[in-house]
Amino acid sequence: MLPEVTATRYVTPLREGGSLPGLVEADDLGTYVMKFTGAGQGRKSLIAEVLCGQLARHLGLRAPELVRMWLDPVIGLSEPDEEVQGLLKASGGLNLGMDFLPGSLGFDPLAYEVSPQEAGRVVWFDALVNNVDRSWRNPNMVVWHGDLWLIDHGATLIFHHNWAGAQKAADRPYDASDHALAPFAPDVASAAADLAPEVTEELLDRCAADIPDEWLTDEPGFTDPDEVRAAYSRALAPRARTIHERITLGEPSKDRPSQAPGWLTGKGGDAK
């Protein structure tokens, strides 16, 4: 289970993302980026953050530590923004905290060089979880202490928005042409050789075990949270074995609109 903390002070909203996360202090004296159950993306965005964040770390990729974070909306009463107030009121109870990386800088491909090996590992991982939100438009990576860190995985695991088609997700290709690391000649074959054998159902079960029961209860078509967790493992394990064969790295299409779903971009529409 993830460590558990209680939010003690709402510091400020972070307006870079569509979900309006907040910078929050907690009773363990840590500072976290808090993602809220009351945000438009809902609890499935937080489920994706947990499963992908934990999996990334198990595979040796850098991603912030996660915590279960309890929120009493009263801590934000001094916040003047009505949108933030509404978000806090809608998110009382259990939310998700990500370790704040002070002084980190947004990834800039012109200022930070990434080796083909590291680029390949990130592209392969994003293909596995079908990350539609790590493009040149919005890299969702930061540089901290000279290293590349992965953040914001709420737009992954699109299959869990339509469980009926989840098993087909293993065969879906991944177009990495617009990926933020595509210009660095990612060595996907080497990444697959190293990482695919590690992505077993046992590892996926360990990562899924960190998803709180509260976010899995009452999922349509499932009897209990453990059954939902097992469904994530069944969908991802076979994809890990062959996804490298279906990754496309072509010319970036910079004149094409973002392929992220409407619920992520705020332009309406549902994930398929």
Rank of each mutant, 00 (worst) to 15 (best):
Asp72Asn: 15
Pro102Asp: 04
Leu55Trp: 06
Ala26Val: 10
Glu16Val: 13
Glu16Lys: 13
Cys52Ile: 08
Asp27Thr: 08
Gly38Ile: 01
Cys52Asn: 04
Val33Arg: 00
Lys89Met: 14
Glu79Val: 13
Leu87Thr: 08
Ser91Ile: 11
Leu29Gly: 07
Cys52Val: 12
Pro73Lys: 06
Ala48His: 03
Leu14Ile: 15
Leu66Ala: 03
Leu14Lys: 08
Val33Asn: 00
Glu79Gly: 04
Phe100His: 15
Gly97Met: 05
Leu61Ala: 06
Val24Ile: 15
Asn95Val: 08
Gly92Lys: 03
Val33Tyr: 04
Glu79Met: 10
His58Arg: 15
Arg62Trp: 09
Leu87Arg: 04
Ala63Ser: 15
Leu101Ala: 13
Leu55Lys: 00
Gly93Gln: 02
Ala39Val: 01
Pro64Tyr: 03
Leu46Ile: 13
Gly22Pro: 09
Gly22Ile: 09
Trp70Asp: 11
Gly60Arg: 09
Ser91Val: 11
Leu20Val: 10
Arg68Trp: 11
Leu14Cys: 09
Lys35Cys: 01
Tyr32Arg: 02
Gly40Lys: 12
Gly92Leu: 07
Gly40Gln: 11
Leu23Lys: 10
Leu88Ala: 04
Ala90Asp: 14
Gly40Cys: 03
Gly86Ile: 05
Gly22Lys: 04
Ala26Pro: 02
Ile47Asn: 07
Ser78Trp: 12
Pro21Ile: 04
Val84Trp: 06
Gly17Phe: 04
Ala56Arg: 03
Gly93Ala: 00
Asp28Lys: 02
Gly22Arg: 06
Arg57Gln: 14
Met34Ser: 01
Asp81Phe: 11
Glu82Gln: 13
Ala63Cys: 13
Glu16Met: 09
Pro64Cys: 00
Arg43Asn: 05
Leu46Thr: 07
Arg62His: 14
Trp70Arg: 15
Met98Phe: 14
Leu71Gly: 07
Leu94Lys: 09
His58Leu: 10
Pro21Trp: 03
Trp70Val: 12
Thr37Ser: 09
Gly38Met: 00
Leu59Ser: 08
Ala39Arg: 05
Val50Met: 00
Lys89Thr: 13
Glu65Pro: 04
Ser45Lys: 03
Leu94Ala: 11
Leu77Ile: 10
Thr37Glu: 02
Leu46His: 08
Glu83Thr: 15
Gly17Asn: 00
Leu87Ser: 05
Leu51Met: 12
Trp70Phe: 14
Arg62Asn: 14
Leu59Ile: 12
Pro13Ser: 12
Gly18Glu: 06
Glu25Val: 06
Ala56Val: 11
Pro102Gly: 01
Asp27Lys: 00
Gln41His: 06
Gly38Arg: 00
Met69Ser: 05
Lys35Ala: 04
Asp27Glu: 02
Val24Gly: 01
Ala90Glu: 14
Gly86Leu: 00
Gly76Ile: 08
Leu96Cys: 07
Pro73Arg: 03
Leu77Phe: 10
Thr37Val: 13
Lys89Glu: 15
Pro73Ala: 07
Gln54Gly: 10
Thr31Leu: 10
Glu65Gln: 12
Trp70Thr: 15
Ala63Glu: 06
Arg15Leu: 14
Asp81Tyr: 11
Asp28Leu: 07
Ala26Gln: 02
Glu25Lys: 11
Met69Leu: 15
Phe100Trp: 15
Leu88Val: 08
Val84His: 00
Pro64Met: 02
Asp81Thr: 12
Asp72Gln: 11
Gly76Met: 07
Asp28Gln: 06
His58Val: 06
Gly97Pro: 00
Arg62Lys: 14
Leu14Gln: 08
Leu46Gln: 06
Arg68Ala: 12
Phe100Asp: 03
